[in-house]
């Protein structure tokens, strides 16, 4: 991916930030599942799309925004993660939280 931040890339990063903030509003017990869902959706799925395929990225952005909006609802208190997501999560652990926190 080019280091130059295009408008589209900024929109993707903003949506990722918004999705991660949504995770923090969920009950602590289910936060890891929401976090895995968000990270998997962006990192594993998004890499399948070419950075030049603007139409596909715009489509995913629109779909992602609708999804985040849905998940932001405080009535959504749990989310389903597939075995594939869990396996991906084990290979890509990201932030290993300090247990004292």
């Amino acid at each position: 991916m080019s280091m130059r931040r295009t408008g589209l890339q900024k929109e993707v990063l903003a949506l990722y930030r918004r999705a991660l903030r949504m995770v923090n509003t969920k009950p602590p017990a289910v936060r890891p599942k929401f976090a895995l869902f968000v990270r998997y959706t962006f990192k594993a799925q998004a890499t399948l799309v070419s950075p030049r395929d603007y139409a596909a990225i715009e489509h995913l952005l629109r779909r992602g925004r609708r999804q985040v909006e849905m998940y932001e609802d405080s009535k959504v208190r749990d989310c389903w993660v597939s075995a594939e997501m869990v396996q991906w999560g084990e290979r890509n652990r990201g932030r290993v939280r300090n247990t004292s926190q």
Binding site: L13, R21, N24, A46
Partner: peptide, 23 residues
């Protein structure tokens, strides 16, 4: 780190210092 990792890092910094950084 890629650009998505960088978002996670900046958000972890936000959490550590209890602030919210505008996009």
């Amino acid at each position: 780190l890629d650009s998505l990792d960088a978002v996670e890092v900046v958000m972890a910094v936000e959490e550590e210092f209890a602030i919210e950084i505008p996009d």
